[in-house]
């Protein structure tokens, strides 16, 4: 690292930052496309069928349908990029970006492994250094922005189904965010801070928060499903009800970006759940594992949670959107409130 810094004339910190940005973006990008494959093959597995296996690289290697990931990408690129005449053109173009970027941004604070020391420098395995003052508040704020992608897409499409989808998305967002925030608040309170490094260290010392805050975990987990807009909460899309909802009018690469945003949301949500409740990069019973091992542990947890997302999608029916609002206000809000008060009481009496 020092040699590289000397050669380029950049500081070690800047270089490390660049490396991290590169790695995280590549890994996220690299994970999202195979996730579409896992979704298709995984659902096939759950549904007792074979799944996509026709596309072949150079007409030869089918590699379990993995070539479909490439084929889909190519197909989306070469589709006609259609903007319907009744759409608001600029917003229509902007919306996929608005959906895509926040989905990735949430990942920035999450530590993907133990910090390590090499050559006299301490390297933190998260994009933002610990003690940046934003901590876990940042992904929550970003998560709040994510709905604008859907809203703008819905509104600019100027399509009745899309508007219904947009309406649903906003109603849905309002009703789950409060329960979500209160669930997180309880975590911050117990840990005594909102920096992810601190949350993970605390879980390493006192046990994972999934055991210490099961109610909070349930609320958080459910809200994360609502955040990703997937079954059982895919109202904004609601394919069988409102015909793909907010992205009814989208096609070609713009649609692909919207679809990829969903997978980024899944990855980010899984990473958040891991960090908040599943001990982040900690490995149970191995408090002194090496940095590399912790990265692997983190990845394993995230990938498993991604699979849970897919698994649930293909198992459960869809709620009605008023039922989610009911659940958000009358079940999750009181639950997370009670969780918060209980924790507060417990902390005061100890």
């Amino acid at each position: 690292m020092d040699t590289l810094a000397h050669l380029t004339g950049l500081s070690v910190a800047t270089l490390w930052m660049l490396a991290k940005v590169l790695i995280v973006i590549t890994v996220l990008m690299g994970l999202a496309s195979p996730l579409t494959w896992v979704e298709r093959r995984g659902s096939a597995m759950l549904q007792d069928r074979i799944g996509p296996n026709r596309a072949a690289l150079f007409g030869k290697w089918r590699i379990l349908g993995l070539a479909h990931v490439v084929a889909d990408g190519i197909k989306f690129f070469f589709k006609e990029d259609l903007v319907p005449p009744h759409a608001t053109k600029r917003l229509f173009w902007l919306a996929p970006m608005l959906a895509f970027v926040p989905a990735m941004m949430g990942f920035a604070v999450i530590p993907i492994g133990r910090s390590f020391v090499a050559g006299g420098h301490t390297y933190h395995l998260s994009l933002l250094e610990p003690g940046n003052g934003m901590g876990m508040l940042y992904p929550m704020a970003i998560g709040g922005i994510a709905v604008y992608g859907i809203l703008v897409a819905a509104w600019s499409s100027n399509n009745k189904w899309s508007i219904l989808g947009g309406m649903r998305a906003s109603a849905q967002m309002v009703s789950y965010e409060i329960g979500l925030s209160l669930a997180i608040l309880a975590v911050f309170m117990v840990v005594g801070g909102y920096d992810p490094h601190q949350i993970i260290a605390d879980q390493g010392a006192k046990g994972w928060l999934i055991w210490r805050q099961p109610i909070g975990f349930l609320v958080f987990f459910t809200c994360m499903f609502a955040e990703t807009n997937r079954l059982p909460f895919d109202f904004a899309e609601g394919e069988s009800e409102i015909v793909a909802g907010f992205h009814t009018e989208y096609g070609s690469m713009k649609f692909a970006i919207m679809a990829l945003a969903e997978y980024f949301h899944i990855i980010t949500a899984s990473a958040l759940i891991t960090t908040m409740y599943l001990g982040g990069w900690q490995i149970p019973f191995l408090p002194n594992a090496s940095a590399l091992a912790t990265v692997v542990a983190f990845a394993t947890k995230v990938v498993f949670l991604c699979w849970v997302f897919i698994w649930i999608r293909w198992t459960l029916p869809r709620f009605r959107y008023d039922q989610l609002m009911f659940m958000g206000w009358k079940v999750m809000l009181p639950l997370s409130m009670a969780n918060l008060l209980l924790n507060a009481y417990w902390m005061r009496s100890h």
Partner: peptide
């Protein structure tokens, strides 16, 4: 019917 309500897997089981 299950597919309309969002339970996609029942559809394929029933078709099997």
């Amino acid at each position: 019917h299950a597919l309309d309500i969002g339970a996609m897997t029942v559809f394929l089981y029933a078709f099997r």
